[in-house]
């Protein structure tokens, strides 16, 4: 790890001005960034921690919308979203291990947009809004491919808003080593539509499986997708699974999520 300066602002405004410094980068829980820095693969000059910004923490529900502060840890989401949005709470409860869940934040996960992160699938499937210090970005406009989002330099996720579905469930098929999703599928049944967010599988990062959404919107059951196939084109192939295998798992995990949705 190279030397860097650590800034711990107490407010979003302070954080935004600190992020104006050259080579400054926000630090959520650091579960990806810190190991990357230890390997000397990243070398920010300034890290702006969101840890002490109380205004960016917590889970609240208003009507059909769940609002989660960008600096809220996975552990907190797992507890506080449990009654209103069990699908999201269940997802959060299975990210990493307790140490990761007590440090890692939802804002950090979404901003990093690792192709095998869990939260992006939930945000796409639930639909909702990423709120930053500067603007609001619709979920469908936020993810722009592996490790790429609509966020501008120095822009900070302050709040994430989810449309709470009637029913939802997240099924993660774990990569054996990292236990990140080899394929993760979040199915959300809303009053007017079904949305399916898929993570881990595609070289373009998280995506919506629209054919399944259509089939499930008219018949919300695992049988509804039995006739569909997922193309292996553009799927990730690596040590742990071929594109064909990932494509197959997308369908299997979608079916299981539909069956388990509550």
């Amino acid at each position: 790890m190279y030397d860097f300066e650590l800034v711990k602002p107490k407010s979003v405004d302070e954080a935004v001005s600190a992020l104006a410094a050259e080579d400054a980068q926000p630090l959520g829980g650091g579960q990806t960034l810190i190991p990357t820095m230890k390997q000397r693969l990243a070398a920010p000059a300034v890290l702006v921690s969101t840890h002490d910004i109380d205004g960016m923490k917590g889970v609240s529900t208003d009507g059909g919308v769940m609002t989660v502060g960008g600096a809220t840890t996975h552990g907190t989401v797992a507890k506080e979203a449990a009654s209103a949005f069990p699908g999201l709470a269940g997802l959060a409860a299975k990210i990493g291990d307790p140490a990761v869940r007590n440090r890692g934040t939802i804002g950090g996960s979404l901003a990093n947009n690792d192709p095998a992160a869990c939260y992006p699938a939930a945000l796409l499937a639930a639909g909702g809004t990423v709120v930053t210090n500067a603007r609001e970005i619709a979920a469908d406009d936020f993810f722009e491919g592996m490790f790429t989002t609509a966020l501008e330099e120095g822009e900070l996720i302050t709040v994430v808003k989810f449309n709470i579905p009637e029913k939802s469930n997240y099924q993660k098929f774990e990569q054996p080593a990292s236990r990140f999703p080899l394929v993760g599928v979040f199915v959300a049944k809303h009053s007017d539509e079904v949305r399916v967010g898929v993570t881990g599988a595609s070289e373009d990062g998280v995506f919506r499986w629209t054919e399944a959404e259509q089939a499930l919107s008219s018949n919300f059951s695992a049988e509804a997708i039995s006739g569909l196939t997922v193309s292996a084109d553009g799927m990730i192939g690596d040590l742990h699974g071929t594109p064909d295998y990932r494509a197959h798992l997308v369908k299997v995990m979608t079916g299981r999520a539909v069956s388990a949705a509550e």
């Binding site: 054996p176 080899l182 071929t242």
Partner: peptide, 10 residues
């Protein structure tokens, strides 16, 4: 070996 899910499925 290893009998990973991917290998067993394949």
């Amino acid at each position: 070996m290893p009998l990973s899910p991917a290998r067993v499925w394949a």
